[in-house]
Nucleic acid binder design. Structure first.
Lengths: 236, 236
DNA sequence: TCGATGCTTCGATGGCGCTCGAACTATCGG
DNA sequence: CCGATAGTTCGAGCGCCATCGAAGCATCGA
């Protein structure tokens, strides 16, 4: 009698228009902040917060907590598949993919994030590190851990490229930390290593830090050098 | 702004517990009546009626209207797939497949339905007729038409088996009509042809009609003869 | 023609949950 | 340390919709 038809509860989570809009938007695979999702759904931040809590509770979303930001992503492929099917079945009605385009076009190329490097180059560095097996990401209870392990191989490689890994490991600061990139919506490298990477680029005169803003300007030669050193797969 | 996120409306239809129970039950592929579905969902008939109207309106269900009965079936594979995925995703919770087992075990084998034959044999006849291309079923706007076309081939075959098709075609009554079988939940043959088929079985002394009840008793030889004549695929 | 059965429509009731304002906490950046 | 920004919590308002009783319609079967 009082058996909970769980399918109903699940559908109920999707059924609410605001949540449906958020989920549909997240189908892009990008990580979006609570405020952005609030805009997508045309509700206030506090309403969105409640919706997101429910979706996260039901494990439909995974949360990247990051300082004062909270980035949300679809939890897994299964969730995406259900949404995919649902969208397909609803094809006859006018399904409008809401545009949440980033409004700020400046500062997009390269910048400092707190004390480390952010932007496409920084993301490329992080992705390459994952691909090369330099670092290990860890997941715990639906939340991606921000703390990341530097592997033996990664340590060796980066040391040989000129980064003082040994010294960094002696500091109290966490060595590697995944940081959600604002413009790319993917992780880049933070922590002691991330900070050192930025310093490294400045010292090598690959880039210069703009005073009074967070813009970091790479010169052409510097960008090439950075790619050659840390993002080899992107260069022929 | 006022763009209807159709995915939400669709999910909303599934989200209501009573409707979810009905849909889950219909995943079996069987056709169920409004009252049965009301029982499945533990709601009154009038509530179920409203739910079913919504599901049918949204084209999630197809309706076989049949006299005072209304049989509902899932509209198509897509709907079933969405439900399938949803059930899969909700796997962690206790999804209890409600039992709507037919409570009446008697009268199951063979009986008259109005003036024609019903039961497994009648269903087998109908299915064979479809398979052999004797009849054509038609669909119009989400509702399966009860009226069925007898093909040239079907006419010839049945005539050769001893049924007076020519004579039946002259009567005012619809020749072929699909009728939802109560126990099998599949179609059997009604209309002038269906009535003639029953008469035919009685005249041939394959079966006898019970006075005062709708039971039709086939004798062993009669059943074999019926199968040989009209359901060949079932006999080696 | 008449009762029984299956289903629908209508109207009133009630509750769940979405919504937002206001106040609060936490982090960032200077 | 201070202002700005991101997000949360709380409480009150309110609208939508599921629900059922009662009445009505259609069909069946005798």
């Amino acid at each position: 009698m009082t058996d909970g038809p769980s399918i109903a509860k699940l559908a109920q989570l999707i059924a609410e228009p605001a949540r449906a809009a958020m989920l549909t938007e997240l189908m892009s695979g990008r990580a979006l902040t609570a405020t952005e999702l609030a805009n997508v759904a045309n509700v206030t931040r506090q309403t969105a917060s409640s919706h997101l809590a429910k979706l996260h509770n039901a494990e439909l979303l995974v949360l990247h907590a990051q300082g004062r930001h909270k980035y949300f992503v679809l939890a897994n492929e299964e969730v995406a598949e259900v949404l995919e099917r649902l969208i397909g079945l609803a094809a006859r009605a006018g399904h409008v993919p809401l545009v949440t385009g980033p409004k700020e076009a400046a500062m997009r190329t390269a910048r400092s994030c707190y004390d480390h490097l952010a932007g496409p180059l920084a993301v490329a560095f992080y992705e390459n590190a994952v691909q090369q097996g330099w670092i290990d990401q860890q997941v715990s209870q639906g939340c991606l851990s921000r703390t990341v392990q530097l592997t033996e191989q990664g340590s060796t490689q980066l040391q040989s490229l000129g980064l003082p890994i040994d010294r960094l490991q002696q500091s109290k600061r966490v060595l590697c930390r995944a940081c959600m990139d604002w413009s790319e919506r993917k992780n880049h490298m933070a922590g002691a290593l991330g900070a050192e990477l930025l310093k490294f680029c400045i010292v090598k005169q690959w880039a210069a830090q703009d005073k009074g803003s967070r813009v970091v300007s790479f010169n052409p030669a510097g960008e090439t050098a950075f790619r050659n050193a840390f993002v080899k797969p992107c260069v022929p």
